[in-house]
Simulated assay, not measured.
Amino acid sequence: MPIYLIRHGQSEFNAAHTDGAPDPLIFDAPLTDLGRQQARAARDHAATLGIQSVICSPLTRAIQTAKIIFDGIAPIEISAGPVEHLWHSCDVGRSPAHLASDFPELRFDHLPDVWWHNGPKNQNGVAEEPEHLFHTRIAQFRDTLHHAQTRPLAIVGHCNTFRSLAGFDMKNCEIRRYL
């Protein structure tokens, strides 16, 4: 049974950050109006795939995307496994208590208070995740997917995560079969 990858919709960070521009310092960036429209458009396609379960990154833009696409279709499980490579402010998460306040219908109590990379911080206060740690984390997440019982399965996550996991880039709200 297949596993599908779904990149989140356009975030406020995506809209504000262009190549070479400084980090706009939008921490845990939510979706833009366009990002919400992209997720609504992806919902129709996702509904045809028979997805039974969703694994979602705990970053707000991914959660918002998953809820728009899968509310009423499939249960959403939050996992730090597919979280983005921490390189910019948008990839710094929020505590489970804050996330639970915004998304009370989802469970976050299994996450530690700081579930994103936490190391030395750059000049913007962002703890950049070393590349080798990121790839190791994604390889560990990949290993857990082979044991996923409920399929078809969707993973709602991020560009760099899917590039490391599957070897390809994805556009906002693109849906691609992984396995």
Rank of each mutant, 00 (worst) to 15 (best):
Gly157Pro: 12
Ala80Pro: 09
Asp28Leu: 01
Asn14Val: 04
Asn122Glu: 07
Ser11Ile: 08
Pro2Tyr: 00
His117Arg: 07
Asp71Tyr: 03
Phe108His: 10
Thr161Asn: 00
Met1Ser: 12
Asp91Asn: 03
Pro104Met: 01
Glu12Ala: 13
His147Cys: 04
Ile155Ala: 06
Cys90Val: 04
Asp102Cys: 15
Thr65Gln: 10
Thr32Tyr: 07
Lys67His: 11
Ile155Lys: 05
Ile76Lys: 05
Ile63Arg: 02
Val92Tyr: 06
Asp91Pro: 00
Phe108Leu: 06
Ala139Phe: 01
Gly9Leu: 06
Ala15Cys: 00
Ala62Pro: 14
Asp23Arg: 00
Cys56Thr: 10
His147Tyr: 07
Trp116Val: 06
Ala39His: 13
Thr60Ala: 07
Leu5His: 00
Ala41Glu: 13
Asp91Ser: 08
Ser53Lys: 13
Gln140Tyr: 02
Thr18Val: 10
Asn122Cys: 13
His146Met: 07
Asn160Thr: 08
Leu111Trp: 00
Ile3Arg: 11
Tyr178Phe: 14
Gln38Phe: 12
Thr136Cys: 12
Arg43Phe: 06
Leu106Pro: 14
Leu179Gln: 09
Asp113Trp: 03
Ile78Asp: 08
Thr65Ala: 06
Pro120Leu: 10
Ala127Lys: 00
His8Cys: 05
Pro82Ala: 11
Ala166Phe: 07
Gly93Gln: 03
Ala41Tyr: 02
Ile63Glu: 04
Asp28Gln: 02
Ala80Arg: 04
Gln37Tyr: 01
Gly93Asn: 05
Ala74Pro: 15
Asn118Thr: 09
Ala15Phe: 01
Gln38Pro: 02
Gly81Cys: 05
Leu153Lys: 09
Gly93Lys: 02
Phe162His: 05
Lys121Gln: 15
Leu179Thr: 09
Asp113Ser: 14
Lys67Ser: 03
Gln140Lys: 10
Leu106Ser: 02
Pro58Ser: 08
His110Val: 05
Gly35Asp: 07
Leu31Glu: 10
Asn118Gly: 03
Thr48Val: 03
Arg107Leu: 09
Gln140Asp: 14
Ile69Asn: 13
Ala148Val: 13
Ile73Ser: 11
Leu59Ile: 11
Val126Thr: 08
Ala97Gln: 15
Leu145Arg: 11
Ala41Cys: 09
Pro104Asn: 04
Phe70Gly: 01
Pro2Arg: 01
His132Arg: 07
